[in-house]
Amino acid sequence: MKLSYKKNFSNCFSGQAHLEPLAWIFALMNLIFVTGAMGLGVFLLVQSLPIMKAEGLDFWLGENWWVGETYGALSMIVGSLMVTALAVTLALPIALSAALYTSEYLSPSLRRGVKGVMELLAGVPGIIYGLLGISFLAVTVKESFNLLYGNTLFTAGCLLAIMILPTVLTLAEDALHAVPIEYREVAEGLGLSKLQTALRVVVPQASSGIVGAILLGIGKAMGETIAVLMVVGSLDRIPGWNLFVSGQTIPSKLGREAAEALGSGLHWSALMGLGLTLFFMVSILTYSGTRFTEWSRR
């Protein structure tokens, strides 16, 4: 029996499709999208080459950022990581347990209510959270921890935790709710209690969606500019292990110095280097997230 199958004609230009103007327009649009997306990365890379040449590894390992003299991004990188880590540590347990409860225990109408509130809040602009941050959170933090000032990494972390809470909650809940009801029925039929069913059957089934939600939350926290800029204190110094001091994150540094540095040689390049660093951090996070989703589907 011969196995020389014809190639089928399923390629993109099947039949006369390539003669249609629409195909070319769409291909052009796609090209614009790809150019834009790749361009962003390439642009950041090219623009940050001068600082890489000038500073080498010291760009990431240096602690001092003095415009015109030396550019070391370590304090912003550490600041970003600390703030993000704090936000995630605070938000995740709360968001995930609330998601579990909402998905598994609430009545449909209550669930819809909770989801509605969460989806609305997920859309509240960063500037509004910033406003809340400087008016309430900074003052609360200052007073309840008996500090001299309220603009600390801790304040920024708390604010970010509140900001990402609705997003993570609603996405994780979606993932849990998408698990077919049959799984639960089977598990409960085997004598598992409702909580056991939820933890042992539903959560593992929804794991890829939950991981996606978490990564999206981390990415959002890492990239938030305006709200952090308003409360973090903007001091370029490595905070050590103390969260109750002011600090700087990569986005807040970018937000503060971008307008000033524009076109001024090495300073601009250094900011682009910061941008590239942030871009890499977030991209790796996103990429590993999608890979995990693919892997867990198998």
Partner: peptide, 13 residues
């Protein structure tokens, strides 16, 4: 009517 053209890895002989 060549409806399977768009299915990836569909082959005929």
């Amino acid at each position: 009517c060549r409806m399977n053209d768009c299915i990836e890895n569909f082959r005929i002989e």
